[in-house]
Design a protein around this nucleic acid. Structure first.
Length: 240
DNA sequence: AGCTGATCATAC
DNA sequence: GTATGATCAGCT
């Protein structure tokens, strides 16, 4: 694949010096410029400039890479349910890649609402809002590459095509319909062409309210929306 | 081997 | 608990 060669080229790029960034980017151009400057750098390069320690693995630091990149690029949203760069209308996502330069993991989008959902619509949904415009940061993600050595790739500023948007809408509507009908317990990660619903919690003891089969309130594990690897792989291919 | 369901850290 | 950042790891 010629396409992948380009990503590889960027990922294996030569490290260059960079300036520590702490203030939010004032424009899309500035954000993109900063993102491009990270290409070819390792996680330890970024961590060193921010004076943070790089974990030896991510078993107990699963969101570490995302937080590191967020801080470096000047994101400020924190844990609020909005885009990372709300003023710019851009969401930031790191994307762990295999040696074959394909996504190693699905991509978390947002928490799934399970109650008070009768009036929710795709157009104003959290999923659509978050995916309007995404700055993808590909990063080497194979487990046998120590986090310190993992290199950051060239960023991809992506917006869903009409077709992608339509498929996302269909998946979202199908899943939300099942939730509204009280079928939350029968929803598996196999449903949805590009968007899937999976548990999203600290552990199995976490419970939240949902609609039961007879319309009554029940308790269930919290869920989140995730993008399948095949979907982000396509984004990657389209970009190169 | 890849996927689904489970899990980890942190802020509020 | 909700919500962010995700990856882990057992099972098929």
């Amino acid at each position: 694949m010629l396409a992948f060669f380009h990503i590889l080229k960027f990922i294996q790029g030569i490290c260059c010096s960079f300036v520590k960034i702490t203030h939010p980017p004032e424009s899309e151009a500035v954000l993109l410029e900063r993102a491009h400057q990270m290409a070819g750098l390792s996680l330890s390069d970024i961590a060193h400039s921010l004076n943070v320690h790089v974990p030896n693995n991510f078993k107990r630091h699963k969101g570490w890479t995302g937080q590191l990149i967020e801080t470096h690029l000047g994101a400020t949203a924190g844990s609020k349910p909005i885009q990372d760069f709300a003023e710019l209308g851009i969401e930031l996502k790191t994307l762990p890649l295999s040696y074959a330069l394909k996504p190693l993991e699905t991509t978390y989008v947002c928490y799934a609402p399970l109650v008070n959902i009768s009036n929710l619509q795709w157009e104003t949904s959290n999923v659509k809002n978050k995916l309007q415009k995404v700055l993808w940061i590909p990063i080497e993600g194979e487990r046998d590459i120590p986090p310190k050595e993992r290199k950051i790739g060239s960023p991809i500023l992506w917006q869903p095509t009409e077709l992608q948007n339509e498929i996302l809408r269909q998946d979202w509507e199908e899943l939300m319909e099942l939730i509204a009908l009280g079928k939350i317990e029968s929803i598996t990660a196999r449903i949805g062409e590009v968007l899937q619903l999976r548990p999203k919690a600290a552990d199995g003891s976490a419970l939240t309210q949902a609609i039961g089969l007879d319309g009554e309130m029940i308790h269930t594990r919290p869920r989140g929306f995730y993008l399948r690897k095949s979907f982000t792989e396509q984004i990657l291919e389209d970009a190169f």
